[in-house]
Structures are given as C-alpha cells and as structure tokens.
Nucleic acid binder design. Structure first.
Lengths: 246, 246
DNA sequence: GATGCCCGTCCCACTGAGTGGGAGGATCCC
DNA sequence: GGGATCCTCCCACTCAGTGGGACGGGCATC
C-alpha cells in the first residue's frame, strides 16, 4: 500500500488510535473525509473503521460529525493514575481551595506535556484548564515543577531543544531555583493575565509523579502568599500517596 | 482461526476493544494470561497487542499488571455527551446540592445500563456511584426514570425479559406512574439502605437523554421532600439543554 | 430538472499484515 | 536442580483487512 509515504500508520491498531486521537484533537466534531485527510488513511478504510467504532460506542455520530463516544468515557473514568491521585488529593484540594479560592490543578507528565488530572474551578473565567487537558511543560508552573525534579534526561533534552542558547541557560537556572524552593511560577507565560504557582508531588523514590498548582489573575493574586500554601499541599499529597501504596 | 468457538472476536478492532474492556472490568489490574483467558485470544497475540497499546500509553503496566493508561483518560475527558451535559448541569446540581446535601448523579442510557456522567458526593459513605460507573436500569431510580419515557422498544423488551410475569406487570405499572409523575424511586432495590429519587431529562423531541437523581440513607432521607426538588432540577436541565443546542 | 460537487458507504479480487504454536528466558518457590 | 508460572519473540502460513472505484443521496447553482 501507499508505498510512497513511509511512517504512515500501517497496522490496524495504529490506524484506530490515529483516528481516535484525531477525533479528540478536532474539538467539536469531524467528518469521515476530514479524518481521512488528517490521518492519511484512505476514505473507504476510515469509513469502515469508524463504522465499527460507532457500532461499539467508542465513537458516536451527531448531525455535525463524529465525536468521542460513551465507552471511551467509561474507560477513561477507570484510568489508574487519575483515580489513585483523586482519592489521595481530594481532601488536600479542599483545604487548599478554602485557603485560596483560586483555580486548582493536579497534573501528571505525559511526553513533553502535562495532563491535568483534577481541576477545581476558582474565580478565573474562562477556566484556563480542565481535567483531561494538555498543557505544555516548558512554560507552565506545573510543568516546571516536574521538570526540575525529573531524572529522565530524554524528556528534559526534548524540552530544551528548540530553545535558543540564552533562553536555555536561564531556563536551567530557573529549574535550579525550583529545585531549591520546591515551587515553580508561571507569570503569564502560558495564558495572558494568569499567574500559576506549582509544587511537585514526589514518589517515595523522590521522583516526580505529579504537580499541584494554584492559578489566579495576575492583577490581584499574591504569589508570595500562595507559595507556602502550595508547597504544603504538595508535601501532604506526597505523604498521602506514600501511605496509599503501603 | 479458532474454528471451534464462533462469536469470538476475529477482527483486530474487536480484539483490541475486548482487551480494553476486560482491563476496565478487572478493577485493579490484570495480567496477560488473565486477559488471554477472559477474551479467548491466544496469549502471544494478547502480549503483542498489549505491548503496542502500552507503547501508545493507552494501557500502562504497573508492578501488579496491566491498567488503563493516560491516553484513554484524555480521550474520555473529551467525550461529547458527558461534556455537553456537564456544562448544562453544573449550576443545576449546585442548587440541588444546596437544597439537599445528598449524593447526586446525572446518568445517561447505554445499552441496558445507565452510566453515571456526573457524580456529586453527599453524606453517603461509601458513595454508591461515581462518574463513569454502570448501574442497572431495571432497579435504579435513574434507570426507571429513563425507561418510562423511552420509545426504544428493544431496550424495554430486553429489560423486561428475565422478569417473571408478575414482576413484569408490576414493573409496567410502576413505569406508568413514573410517566405520570415524572419521578422514579428506588427503595433499596440496588444498594441496601440507599433510597434514590430520579427524574428524566428530555430532548426537545420529548425523548429521554439523561436522568438526574438524589440518593440518601433510607433511615433519614425524606423522599417526599426530594421529589419536587428533583423534578424541578430535571426540568431546568431539560430547558438549559434545549437552549444550548439552539 | 439537469449538472456539478462533495458527501459517506459498499463491493470484491488481491495480498501482506496479523497470526499463534512453540521455543526461550526470567523469576519464584519447594 | 526441578517444576511451575509468567511473558516475549520468532517466522512460515493464510485469511482478515485493504482500497480503488462504483454507487446513491443531499445540496447548491444554472
């Protein structure tokens, strides 16, 4: 098949996952033709695969096109890491919310991004993130909190690649500060007008498993007041996770 | 292959979905061998498919076995129906929670079960349901609220099948009452000691798209007080959904 | 109502992707 | 060392999956 382009998905599994991811990325909904174009899979094949996935309720058809179905929602709700974190984090988040009233997130590393696992709405409108959303590691407080403690050289290298030498050094210095203080800050780097303060959650082996963050409006959130609160929340969560495993 | 047993999954897609579903059902975690037994797929094939799914982060390996991975969480969080319902339902649930303080659920029909799409914790411990959980249609207030208004004969027949004639008639009479009052009740049928009160959420075509429920301890929850509150919440949600579409 | 365009689905001969029995390695317990 | 249980890898075979193209329906535009 398609002898011309290499790197195209050839296995059925790759194709299915490519379709699912493309549907996810198309916020709203997509059509068969758009999926065929985006994935490089012939239209007739996309039609058949989507038909099967719809029959199994992994996808659904609306009048506007193809969307994520209920079965994937069901599967996602059972995902291991988010569940474990939720159980441990909810009381911690409740306390942190009482103390701050701001938008809270717990996120984990996934490739070069962070994925928000739990999200609590504060006064920010619109909310900059929701559970299940990807945010870049390089600019968010969440990402920097995790990167500062990671021992995975590959991820760090990938993030640094693309930075100019200047930026690169200042970023490495910033991570050193984060390591020392156990708090990372995002001053409107990711979302204009939004300041984030995050602290890492570590495994018993001192490796970063997640990060917890507070985000509020640049104009009237006191980052200095947030820092000890977030650091404390992350420490408590680290401790609760260690107990949970045992 | 496997000429003996028909109905076994033969297509790659069916096999992948069978594996994913089996992993989901195995609360906690499964091994390759258990998956092979449960799905009827040869072990070497399961090993290869699971390996691919892990590489793509749709599944993950822990020290205890195979679990649902982050990519499925990400996909699930983008599912269309839950998202639309969440946006419309959150203010309604906030009001209902203030009025009751009990465990709340919004659920949609999926086959012969209901799937909880949003869950708000009340004072019940442990919580009888969470978002993403399946509960049977035939006994829960949520299920009966939807069944009373469904026009899908097939689903109704499937649910009725297996009931003895007596039970069948009383169930049909119960549904008629639900239709008249727009409220269904589950008096400890599904969970011992737990009473549920639910009301249907309808589409502009008057077809059931979801149901909203309050659940509390049999001992000291006043179902009669709940009924108008739940009915009102469902009506408001029905209205908000109609506006959302327009 | 004829023409053109863009949908999505279906058909079916061809073929290479997927298969799975069996070998092999790792780990654990007796 | 022997046995049990786990998972992964190999590779010749073959049938499941493929995709070009035909088809039918929806919708403007002329």
């Amino acid at each position: 098949m398609r002898s011309a382009l290499t790197g195209e998905p050839v296995s059925v599994l790759d194709r299915i996952l490519a379709i699912l991811d493309t549907v996810r990325e198309s916020h709203g909904s997509t059509t068969i033709t758009q999926l065929a174009l985006a994935t490089g899979i012939p239209k007739s094949t996309v039609s058949r695969l989507v038909g099967d996935l719809v029959r199994q309720r992994y996808l659904a058809r609306t009048e506007h096109g193809v969307v994520i179905g209920l079965r994937l929602f069901e599967l996602g709700a059972r995902a291991s890491t988010p569940r474990r974190l939720s159980v441990a984090a909810l009381p911690v988040l409740a306390e942190l919310f009482n103390a701050t009233g701001e938008h809270l997130n717990v996120a984990v590393q996934e490739g070069q991004d962070m994925i928000s696992v739990i999200s609590v709405r504060g006064r920010l409108r619109p909310a900059p993130s929701r559970a299940g959303v990807r945010v870049p590691s390089a600019t968010t407080a969440l990402g920097k909190a995790v990167l500062a403690f990671t021992e995975d050289e590959a991820v760090l290298r990938d993030v640094l690649t693309g930075f100019e030498p200047d930026r690169r050094h200042s970023f490495e210095r910033e991570l050193a500060t984060v390591r020392a203080e156990a708090v990372a800050i995002d001053r409107c780097e990711t979302f204009p007008g939004v300041v984030g303060v995050a602290s890492p959650v570590l495994s018993p082996e001192r490796l970063p498993v997640a990060a917890i963050s507070v985000a509020g409006p640049e104009s009237d959130m006191d980052a200095n007041r947030m820092m000890p609160l977030v650091r404390h929340a992350a420490l408590v969560l680290t401790h609760r996770l260690a107990l949970q495993t045992a």
